[in-house]
Amino acid sequence: MRAVVQRVTSASVTVDGEVVGAIGRGLCALVGVTHDDDVGRAEQLAGKVWQLRIFPDDEGRMDRSAEEVGGEILVISQFTLYGDTRKGRRPGWGAAAPGPVAEPLVEAVADALRARGATVATGRFGADMQVALVNDGPVTLVLEL
């Protein structure tokens, strides 16, 4: 499982002109799933995202988590995180799990975050989504499990 996590002041996802998910201060997590991922890995990723210490403390050091600051989480499925660009100019998608495997695992990440107390918004799996965000910092990290 892979995620690109951005600290944001706000983020939203729109499908067919309709905002289907929006958050204020928190994290936007683009989540990719590969073939050998499972619910355990989804729960592990959720814990890492929720407790990642990338929010400033009183001295301005990145030492607080979304959990500590009450940050919201926007979870977006992102199969292109497993694009292989080593050969040619067109990415290969063989490492990305197919929809029937990936969709429940992206939902498992969102559910595990909710179970930890997070306010979670999501995109719509498989849809053509437009994601808007204000990256705070900017802070962007790649997580891989």
Rank of each mutant, 00 (worst) to 15 (best):
V8F: 03
T9C: 10
S10K: 15
A11E: 02
A11S: 09
A11R: 01
A11V: 01
S12M: 14
V15R: 04
V15F: 07
D16Q: 11
D16T: 12
D16C: 11
D16L: 09
G17T: 10
G17M: 12
G17Q: 12
E18K: 15
E18F: 14
V19N: 13
V19K: 14
G21Y: 03
G21C: 01
A22Y: 11
A22F: 11
G24K: 10
G24R: 06
G24S: 08
R25E: 09
L27Y: 02
A29Y: 00
A29M: 04
V31S: 06
V31Q: 03
G32H: 06
T34P: 08
T34N: 14
T34Q: 15
T34V: 13
H35A: 12
D36C: 12
D36W: 13
D36V: 11
D37K: 01
D38C: 11
V39Q: 13
V39F: 11
R41F: 14
L45E: 03
L45D: 00
L45C: 02
A46L: 05
G47I: 07
K48R: 12
K48C: 00
K48P: 03
W50S: 03
L52H: 09
R53C: 05
R53K: 09
R53I: 08
I54Q: 00
P56M: 05
P56R: 08
D57F: 03
D57P: 04
D58Q: 14
D58V: 15
D58C: 13
E59Q: 15
E59Y: 12
E59V: 13
R61L: 13
D63N: 15
R64P: 07
S65A: 06
A66M: 01
E67R: 14
V69E: 06
V69Y: 02
G70L: 01
E72P: 04
E72I: 05
L74G: 04
V75S: 01
Q78T: 01
Q78S: 10
F79I: 09
F79Y: 05
L81F: 04
Y82P: 04
G83L: 07
G83D: 14
D84H: 07
R86T: 13
R89V: 13
R90M: 06
P91F: 03
G92Y: 11
G92S: 14
G92F: 11
W93L: 15
G94H: 12
G94A: 13
A95K: 11
A96D: 06
A96M: 08
A97R: 02
A97Q: 06
P98H: 10
V101M: 13
A102G: 08
P104T: 09
L105C: 11
